[in-house]
Design a binder for these strands. Structure first.
Length: 589
DNA sequence: GCCGTTTTCGGCCCGACTGTTTTCAGTCG
């Protein structure tokens, strides 16, 4: 029987929603119910299989009797009759049409039914034949646009790692802030929420001269072409390929626009509902009295609308503490904010050191001296050197002899520092059977050991989980690096039972890494609330292969914040003296 | 199909922009 994981369940539910849209006369709220359930499960920390076996799927918000039945069938039998039947009604490749901007269910339905368009390839052909322009609701412009999008598709894959677009985002934000007509400036959207992958950049600017600001935006050197330009909203394509949207608003509208366009969509829906409960309506410009009959029918007297000058006052108006953007995913932030229980999230300035860094001894570019100097410039008190072990041949992994030489060199270097220390470690491969790449004698000469998987990614989940847990249980292993091995937008996570990994880490006091390299950001933020509840400690590491990469720690802090972590959840916020104690204690345990 | 500090029925967030129309549907966020 095939194992179905959570991601696959989410995908099935999303696909059901998409296909239902293509069905004639389908209830739109039924479609939304499937989407809601998918989103809800995506962020649910529990184990679906366990829940299904105990008949407790209804505990997941947004999952009712019908959807619970489908999930249950999926996780217990590996298939869903409803899903399979739905899939069979439509051509296999029709789903790929949804990835084209400007095409939604209605238009795809028309293309499919009237032109027998079954795939992107079919659509490209229909465009070049001129058949698309003849469809009602379509036209020559649409046809040309679609043809161009299909042509550009390879170039603009559409999704970007946060780190790929950070420099564009920060530069545009800074340039807006330097503009004399810009009164208030912020980046919004998923970038502000520190999502690991973003599809566009959103900028909110308060100004009395919208035209001036828009003109400045479309003329910015980073801009390649203008997609749409209106009085309040302008969209452009940047040279890097990402789309950037600008909203110009008044100062009074700014906090509402900033909140609205920071999202997430799910967060905004709850915000609007809270406004409605108070007899108000919330949009991207203001809080206003609700005009609709619903409120009157319910004979509710609307509360007086308080003054809102910034986001904090907006949250306060709705009975909430200010919610940091990273937490705005409707994953429990409302319950906490209503009760005053939001955590004080870790900040970049809290980090005192970091552990997982490479040098030119393996596949890094700088020497330990250079890495140490860069770390001190960032204000860190310690840095751990953890080059690859011998099995990582592709990365120039060290054998025991070279490792000993490096340890000796680091000891020597440490004599030259004042108030700073290099730790000698290794990124030790976890071999296929869960054993480590060095013997205990070699490992015990180090200050710490980072264990990680670099081979045999295709193992079945149970075997992979057992392999990693064996390494976690090894008394000389200090921390587990990039626990799922994913490369964002390139390679999926290997199959592994993360809750089981977290249990083993909690039991042995082994730290779990947030790998801050933008291509990894692993362990994912969605797992950290569960990890924290189990008492697992986090370590934020840059996996730096050069001095400039140490700054990527910033992305790791974003993940930690998104995972609700505070300073005390992250071990490398400890100052030098205390981290030395913590390392020694782990060895004794 | 889901949900309920007012509801087990009757709701379900809402506005901008585009391209097609000649007053609006579709898409997007």
């Amino acid at each position: 029987m095939p194992e179905i994981n959570k991601e696959e369940v989410v995908e099935v539910l999303e696909t059901i929603a998409t296909l239902l849209e293509l069905q004639a006369e389908e209830n739109p709220f039924k479609i939304r119910a499937y989407t809601n359930a998918a989103r809800s499960i995506e962020t649910w920390g529990g184990n679906l299989r366990e829940l299904a076996e105990q008949d407790r799927l209804l505990e997941i918000p947004g999952v009712g009797k019908a959807i619970a039945g489908k999930i249950s069938e999926l996780v217990l039998t590996g298939t869903s009759t409803f899903y399979d039947e739905l899939r069979a009604k439509f051509p296999e490749k029709i789903l790929e049409l949804f990835s084209l901007p400007g095409l939604g269910a209605k238009k795809i339905k028309a293309l499919y039914e009237k032109l027998q368009v079954h795939s992107i390839a079919d659509l490209a052909q229909a465009c070049s034949d001129g058949r698309v322009a003849e469809l009602p609701g379509f036209g020559k412009t649409t046809q040309e646009k679609l043809a161009k999008i299909i042509g550009d598709r390879a170039k603009n894959a559409g999704s970007f790692q946060l780190g790929q677009v950070a420099s564009d985002a920060e530069q545009l934000q800074n340039d807006f802030r330097s503009h004399p007509a810009a009164l208030l400036v912020s980046i919004a959207g998923s970038y502000r929420r520190r999502k690991e992958v973003v599809r566009d950049l959103d900028f909110i600017v308060a100004t009395k001269e919208p035209e001036t600001i828009t003109e400045f935006f479309v003329g910015h050197p980073l801009v390649e072409s203008v997609i749409a330009r209106g009085a309040t909203k302008t969209s452009v394509r940047l040279r890097s390929g990402i789309q950037a949207d600008l909203r110009v608003v008044s100062s009074a509208e700014y906090p509402f626009a900033l909140g609205y366009f920071t999202g997430s969509k799910e967060h905004n829906i709850v915000m609007r509902n809270r406004a409605r409960q108070r007899g108000w309506t919330l949009n991207e410009y203001r809080l206003a009295p609700a005009e609709d009959g619903a409120t009157q029918k319910k004979k509710r007297v609307a509360e007086k609308i308080p003054r809102v000058r910034d986001e904090t006052e907006l949250y306060r108006a709705l009975g909430l503490d200010f919610v940091p953007p990273e937490l705005r995913e409707n994953c429990g932030e409302f319950e906490a904010a209503a009760k005053g229980n939001l955590p004080r999230l870790i900040e970049p300035g809290n980090l005192r050191g970091t552990f997982h860094c490479h040098t030119s001894a393996s596949d890094g570019r700088n020497s330990p001296e250079e890495m140490a100097a860069a770390a001190q410039e960032l204000g860190l008190q310690y840095l751990g050197i953890a080059d690859h072990s011998r099995s990582s041949i592709q990365a120039g992994g060290l054998d025991a002899e070279r490792l000993r030489a490096q340890v000796a060199a680091i000891k020597e270097l440490n004599k030259s520092f004042d108030g700073f220390r290099l730790f000698a470690g290794v990124e030790c491969d976890i071999l296929r059977d869960g054993s480590l790449d060095f013997d205990d004698e070699t490992l015990s000469e180090l200050d710490y050991v980072v264990a990680s998987v670099h081979s045999a990614f295709q193992l079945p989940e149970a075997e992979m989980t057992e392999r990693i847990i064996r390494a976690i249980r090894h008394p000389l292993v200090t921390m587990l690096a990039h626990p799922t091995g994913r490369l964002l937008l390139r390679r999926p996570a290997y199959a592994v039972d993360i809750p089981a990994i977290l249990d083993a880490a909690a039991e042995t006091g082994t730290w779990i890494e947030i790998n801050a390299a933008p291509k990894r950001l692993d362990l994912d933020w969605r797992w950290w609330p569960l990890a924290k509840s189990k008492g697992v400690k986090c370590v934020i590491n840059p996996d730096a292969h050069g001095v400039e990469k140490l700054q990527e720690l910033w992305f790791g802090v974003g993940v930690a914040r998104k995972g609700w972590l505070t300073k005390s959840d992250v071990v490398n916020t400890l100052p030098l003296g205390k981290i030395e104690d913590a390392l020694a204690q782990k060895r004794r345990a």
